[in-house]
Design a protein around this nucleic acid. Structure first.
Length: 653
DNA sequence: CGTCGACTTA
């Protein structure tokens, strides 16, 4: 009798247990080398373990390594295929998972064993929006007994749901006789994703069973569909909230432009002893960025370090960069960016490029992109939005045109409406109004509000009444509730001294019930926020200290040649009144408060809800020189760093 | 062997 001897059992078990201990792909490679020496590479079981560990353990570079090992073996079994298919379905390259699945089908004579991979390949189809492939897998399932497996049916529902083919999902759902809570949840999620609130709500009420996931899906879906109050309702009614419930509600507040409530809710969550995870921190960081509360942001940053929350993979890094940038602390954003030098994901690069762009550091943004190219990191459409905005905020028309070109020719990215919007803005800010209009006329889709607003603000800036009027009327059509276009149109007329038309705009606003958003600026001093609202002369309350400081500033600046820019006043009031209403713009009040209360030498940080006006802009420029202060102002669009009489925006805002 | 939920960048 002959026995075919396999490798010694002890060698196999010790190799596998060593493999399981590997922390980096480098260590795994050494064991692989050892396996080659001892001929274990021909032992399917051990190689399978190697591939599975590489694909499924999340080691960086593991998947690619697993694929290369796989390509060198002769008879891969279903277990090996499963490991790779699952690994790739969760990666950023889900198509590879579909390719492997097809490969597996061609290798095997019978279907035995392939069913392990069905949930993963379906997930890959969903993730990569591969409708045709998804349908084929579905068809194959219908022809076999697999359709009686609830895991598989739920995966099919989930696949259609993610692709957005909600009717297909519904058909599968209706035919299932063993629907469980997961089937219901996926279906509800699908309707919410499609914006079908009523249908989602119907299923929510009908569902025989709800769990915490069901409610969380409703909170999230309501929030994303602009129904924050409904989200609140579900949230308040829940008795067992988990960290996802809190996170979803925090995000709903952020989306509803209520960052204060988001932050308060986060604090409530902490006080109840719920431990925030990475996603919760990302959400609250975005609220903090909106508020500009850098101290809170630093606290979260510390929390992340102290609790060893993993930065990668995930959104933490880009959320931190974004938060620091929105708080005006671009140096801290840079610090975070640099600290993760080895494994940055595309979002981290994009956040930093956009951050530099909003701070007017266009040249620096372009340099970061050069670095990406050197490191062969594939940019995506958002990278180019950042670059285009860097160019338009920096007046770099030629560069902007260049990036718009290579985006398509070198990187095969089809420009979306936002890219065209940036291009319009690029020409507009530079005063090339005709070119800006040319983009609108030739772009392959209808121009949206943002594009017309870019034209409008460019016309205001460059004093073009005809183009500006036309753009303002387009914006009124497309976004009737937006008051900013009325203000800008009025400014255009005022600049042309057409006071009758200014009055007409004012009348139009009144008739249409459009309300001007009151200007509001806030400033942080010693960890406390002080808010200033634009205020009429009549109610000065107890801001007399601030008001007399403004008077002092005005007279000091007048000696330096400051002349109030009266075209920035909406109403046609008497010249005298105009001057003083300008003085009460919220950013001037916040600035006066800052000069009084922020210690000498420290920069003054101000956040304004609207765009800064021309008068305030030149006023603050002068203040930075006369009072020798660095002043950082965040307005609706970007940052202005004022220093020694000039501003980082160089007039492009 | 496996199915459902939250998060950044414009």
């Amino acid at each position: 009798m002959t026995t075919i001897s396999g490798p010694p059992t002890l060698l196999v078990t010790s190799t596998i247990s060593t493999l399981e201990k590997c922390k980096t792909i480098h260590e795994t490679r050494q064991i692989h080398a050892h396996m080659i020496k001892t001929n274990l590479v021909n032992h399917t079981f051990t190689v399978g373990k190697l591939i599975a560990l590489c694909s499924l353990s999340g080691l960086s570079g593991g998947l690619d390594y697993a694929l290369s090992v796989f390509s060198q073996i002769r008879n891969p079994n279903a277990f090996i295929f499963f490991a790779l298919i699952k690994g790739f379905s969760e990666s950023s390259n889900p198509l590879q998972s579909i390719i492997l699945y097809a490969h597996m089908l061609s290798c095997f004579k019978e279907l035995k064993g392939i069913e392990f991979s069905l949930p993963s390949v379906l997930k890959a189809c969903g993730k990569s929006r591969s409708f045709e492939e998804g349908r084929q897998v579905h068809a194959q399932i219908l022809k076999t007994h697999f359709r009686f497996d609830p895991f598989v049916s739920n995966s099919v529902i989930r696949m259609y749901e993610e692709i957005g083919e909600i009717e297909f999902a519904r058909r599968v759902f209706d035919k299932m006789f063993d629907r469980d809570v997961i089937s219901w949840n996926s279906m509800i999620k699908g309707y919410l994703r499609a914006g079908e609130i009523e249908l989602a709500c119907g299923l929510f009420n009908e569902a025989p069973e709800r769990d915490v996931v069901t409610c969380n899906a409703m909170i999230d879906g309501y929030g994303k569909n602009g129904k924050c109050e409904l989200a609140e309702e579900v949230f308040r009614m829940m008795s067992d909230k988990d960290v996802v419930s809190w996170t979803s509600m925090i995000s709903a507040y952020v989306l509803d432009h209520r960052p204060r409530q988001a932050l308060d809710l986060f604090r409530e969550m902490l006080s109840l002893g719920v431990r925030p995870d990475a996603a919760a921190l990302v959400s609250v960081l975005s609220a903090i960025g909106d508020l500009g509360f850098v101290e809170e942001g630093k606290w979260i940053h510390n929390y992340i370090s102290a609790n060893k929350i993993t930065l990668n993979p995930g959104f933490i890094v880009s959320a931190l960069i974004d938060m620091y940038s929105k708080c005006g602390h671009i140096e801290n954003a840079y610090h975070v960016f640099r600290c993760v030098s080895h494994r940055k994901n595309i979002g981290d690069w994009n956040s930093f490029i956009s951050a530099l762009a909003t701070h007017g550091l266009g040249q620096e943004a372009l340099e970061i992109f050069l670095d990406m190219e050197r490191k062969e990191i594939e940019p995506d459409e958002i990278t180019f939005l950042g670059l285009l905005s860097a160019c338009s905020h920096g007046g770099m028309v030629d560069e902007g045109q260049y990036y718009f070109k290579i985006m398509q020719e070198k990187y095969n990215i089809v420009p979306k409406i936002q890219h065209y919007g940036c291009l319009v803005d690029l020409y507009g800010r530079a005063g090339l109004l005709e070119d800006a209009l040319g983009v609108i006329q030739t772009m392959p889709m209808e121009a949206d509000v943002l594009a017309w607003k870019a034209i409008l603000s460019a016309s205001t800036k460059h004093g073009n009444v005809a183009i500006g009027e036309n753009a303002a009327f387009k914006v009124m059509d497309l976004a009737p509730e937006d008051s900013s276009c009325y203000i800008l149109l009025s400014n255009i007329y005022a600049k042309a001294r057409r006071w009758d038309d200014v009055a007409k705009v004012r009348l139009m606003m009144k008739q249409r019930g459009v309300r001007k958003i009151p200007g509001c600026s806030s400033i942080l001093v010693n960890g406390k926020v002080h808010e200033f609202l634009v205020r009429k002369e009549m109610d000065m309350r107890n801001d007399s200290e601030v008001l007399s400081k403004i008077e002092e500033m005005v007279s000091r600046l007048k000696l330096e040649g400051y002349e109030p820019d009266l075209t920035q006043v909406l109403l046609d009031i008497e010249e005298e009144g105009k001057g003083s209403s300008l003085c009460h713009h919220s950013e001037k009040m916040a600035l006066a408060f800052g000069l009084i209360n922020v210690r000498n030498g420290a920069p003054i940080h101000i956040v304004k809800n609207l765009r800064i006006c021309c008068d305030c802009h030149s006023f603050i420029k002068l203040v930075s020189r006369v009072y020798n202060r660095r002043i950082v102002v965040r307005d609706q669009n970007r940052f202005h760093h004022f220093e020694d009489g000039s501003c980082s925006c160089k007039g492009y805002w």
